[in-house]
Design a binder for these strands. Structure first.
Lengths: 88, 88
DNA sequence: TTTCTAATTAGTGCTTTCGCTAATTAGAGT
DNA sequence: ACTCTAATTAGCGAAAGCACTAATTAGAAA
């Protein structure tokens, strides 16, 4: 996993937009979903991939799940693109 | 097209390794292929995706095709990751 | 033109991704 | 316990990704 999952996660436009939305601050799943014309379950799967790549962190707040952007992991991916270092 | 193709291209480890190899200078398709345990046709398709994303440029030299890294496009992708700007 | 080498395109099979609807889990409020 | 809302997991079908072998294109050299 690791960097592979990160690039895989970044490969889909919806997931990149989710990250962009989180840049301005943490948001609930529903709040994020309102920015797309996709079903909640579909978005939920996208969230799961971002979480798997550790690009976001989740926190429960009552009945809502709040997603946070994990900036450090994103910046690491960035550094890897810059230097074109490869995993493994 | 555009940024979408770039991130799509970056999503596969083989293609990222190709870019890393090109960092040290232009190389022919065969030269690149020697670094992988994949068939030439398979690699050829990977090259095509990198070309489609404009991450590499190709130049014919006799019977060989020489691939060059297109640094500016790569750095643009990098900038996009940094700022999390989204296309469209 | 024939031949050889370098590389790509065509065609196939398998696996993964992605979207949907339906069903399930989790917490809050009554 | 029941119910409502928020969100995820399960299951399915369509589409795309990836690797292979076989066939094709392009240039160099005889």
């Amino acid at each position: 996993m690791g960097i592979n999952a990160v690039f895989e996660a970044l490969s889909h436009p919806v997931r990149r937009k989710v990250l962009a939305l989180l840049k301005s601050g943490p948001k609930s799943a529903g709040e994020l979903a309102d920015h797309f014309e996709l079903s909640r379950p579909t978005l939920s799967v996208h969230f799961a991939k971002l979480k798997e790549a550790d690009l976001v962190a989740v926190e429960r707040q009552g009945t809502s799940l709040i997603y946070h952007l994990n900036t450090s992991v994103l910046e690491q991916a960035l550094a890897d693109v810059l230097s074109l270092r490869e995993e493994k």
